[in-house]
Amino acid sequence: MSQYVDLSAYQGWACADCGQPLVPGSVDVSYLGNSFPVELLKCPGCGLVFVPEELALGKMVEVEKALEDK
């Protein structure tokens, strides 16, 4: 399980382009020049990354607000 989001909840998801099952892997998240690695599901074939909605609308929004001083 990732420490940022419960990846096990997305077990069985496959890449929309390749059809291969997504696997956990390190992904570099970058925003406004700040970059850091997180573990997310991605396609072992084409590298497409799956960002769960709860992460996109949760911590990622918080990061945007903190860095943009909204």
């Binding site: 850091f36 997180v38 990061v63 903190a66």
Partner: peptide, 21 residues
């Protein structure tokens, strides 16, 4: 910093959020 977050066992999202605030 965020490469160090793993070593420090800090959630990198929380690190960036705290530093930004």
């Amino acid at each position: 910093f965020c490469r160090l977050s793993t070593a420090a066992e800090v959630n990198p999202f929380d690190l960036v959020i705290a530093a930004g605030k």
